[in-house]
């Protein structure tokens, strides 16, 4: 089933007299339960594309359908709503709230959902933390956790609201290769359980976890092909 459909997406920044085409006509379809990695040199537009797919940003022009709904024309509050219900973010720099416990951090998306009772939120957050093997770190604050554990909290936060897609912008960028592999194993697991995952990476061996790779160059899609794993 088609989850995301993007047509002729442009994101143009006007910098004085010059215009920066961060995305220069991108068209892309993503199926449910796909495992996609986005690669490309620095400045090629990977983060820009991720931000658009994550409804953090709106395109200069183009169409963007998610679950058949046109997202490109939505207002800020509607976008916030979509982010809350359909999208889970994992950032390179974790972006956890430093003074809150793992539990509080993971609860956040559920709080902004507004319809889930405090008691249920707690249960769901503990369940998500258990899924990333942090059931015993519920009351730790970020500075009491290792880098890998922090990123696992972030993954738990991304999946706690059971989103349609998990978006990860260089999720292993701040981790050593062993811890990076642990996080990737987590994504592999989530994919196996039916989640749709899109991740940005600079490293081929990370990208190889996915089944499809999109390579950007100067804001355009240069290559869109299955990976070795995808061909099997």
């Amino acid at each position: 089933m088609l989850l995301i459909q993007v047509k002729d997406l442009y994101k143009i920044y006007q910098m004085g007299n010059t215009e920066v085409r961060a995305l220069d006509g991108v068209s892309l379809s993503i199926e449910q339960n796909e495992y996609l990695s986005i690669m490309g040199p620095s400045g090629s537009g990977k983060s820009t594309l991720m931000n658009l797919l994550g409804c953090l940003d709106t395109p200069t022009s183009g169409e963007f359908f998610m679950d058949g709904i046109n997202v490109a024309t939505m207002g800020d509050d509607e976008l916030a709503h979509i982010r809350n219900k359909k999208i889970g973010f994992v950032f390179q720099t974790f972006n956890l709230l430093p003074k809150s416990t793992s539990l509080r951090n993971v609860e956040l998306p559920l709080i902004y959902n507004g319809e889930i009772k405090a008691h249920d939120r707690r249960d769901m957050a503990i369940k998500a933390l258990t899924r990333v093997n942090l059931g015993d770190r519920v009351n730790h604050k970020p500075n009491e956790l290792s880098g890998g554990q922090r990123q696992r909290v972030a993954v738990a936060r991304a999946l706690v609201n059971n989103p349609a897609i998990i978006l990860a912008d260089e999720p292993t960028g701040n981790l050593d290769s062993k811890t990076g592999e642990e996080i990737m194993a987590l994504f592999d697991e989530l994919h196996k359980q039916g989640n749709t995952i899109i991740l940005v990476t600079h490293e081929e061996h990370i990208a190889a976890h996915a089944s499809r790779v999109v390579r950007l160059l100067d804001g355009k899609i240069a290559v869109d092909e299955p990976t070795h794993r995808g061909k099997k």
Partner: peptide, 16 residues
């Protein structure tokens, strides 16, 4: 600022 960014990314609206 960053906290606000995180909250917004996770679905907080401006009025919240």
């Amino acid at each position: 600022t960053r906290e606000i960014g995180v909250r917004k990314a996770l679905g907080a609206t401006s009025s919240q």
